[in-house]
Simulated assay, not measured.
Amino acid sequence: MLANLLLLDIETVPAEADYHSLNAEWQSLWFEKISKTVPENMAPEDSYQMKAGILAEFGKIICISTAFFYENEQKAICLKMKSVYGDDERTLLQDFVKLCDKMYAHQKQFQFGGHNIREFDIPFICRRLLINRLPLPEYLQLQDKRPWDVKMFDTLTWWKFGDYKNYISLHLLANVLGIPTSKTDMDGSMVQDVYYKEKNLQRIVDYCQRDVVVTANVILRFKNLPLLDAANVVIVT
């Protein structure tokens, strides 16, 4: 089972640094999109700052970190990670698809694994592929599939155990399960400021990779297997 997984996590930001960078038409489209889901007295520039990065129509992907499990010579469980990142989203997505194609060529039954990827990461990637006029590879053509035919190892779905009201963050789930957390020098709410104000993409990549390691350990905990030794996490540059 573990050998079939391609773990991933994405980091997203608003496509423009702020609401006022949008032209009049896109400002109108933003208001139309968001008007029913934010308080009436919230200014559009504030709602854009808060929500644009998590909406595929108004956001963009700046990092996708991926990883897969393998066993070393001592039969210990290891994790190999690779991230694609940059300001050019189209190139980033093309590199991600090439990486997935290699996995697909090797293992047709591979599954994506991650936290809340069914509701966020995978749909976001698919939408941004189309927006960038890139073809959807076969393993991401999910639009007509029934939910139970879409095979993913989503740790959020696992933790629900059929309770569809339940939501838990990766940070809380890690703490509940006694797993070292990824929230050290930053958290998800800081990503767009680190990107647009600090212009420190590498800091975001490091954070994204730590999230993938946490997710990998959650999966191992679900499987009642030992957590990863830090020495057995390999990052490919």
Rank of each mutant, 00 (worst) to 15 (best):
T155G: 11
E71G: 03
I235A: 13
T157D: 13
E25Y: 13
C208E: 01
L130P: 11
A230W: 06
K160I: 08
V212R: 00
Q209L: 07
A24M: 12
M190C: 14
L228R: 01
I125M: 04
H106K: 07
L93S: 07
R203F: 04
A216D: 02
S182E: 14
L5P: 02
T66R: 05
L22F: 02
A174G: 10
D101L: 04
F124E: 01
L156T: 15
K165L: 12
D18N: 10
K80T: 13
K60W: 00
Q94E: 08
V218R: 11
K60E: 01
L177T: 01
L79D: 05
L177S: 10
V97T: 02
R146N: 11
I125A: 01
N72D: 00
V213R: 07
P147W: 15
T12A: 09
A67S: 08
N166E: 15
M81A: 15
Q109C: 09
L227S: 08
T215N: 09
W148C: 12
K102S: 06
V212N: 03
F110N: 08
P137F: 15
M190Y: 09
E89P: 00
N232P: 01
S21Q: 09
C208A: 00
W30N: 09
F222M: 15
E45K: 14
E40H: 15
F96P: 02
I179S: 08
I62K: 08
L5S: 01
N4V: 12
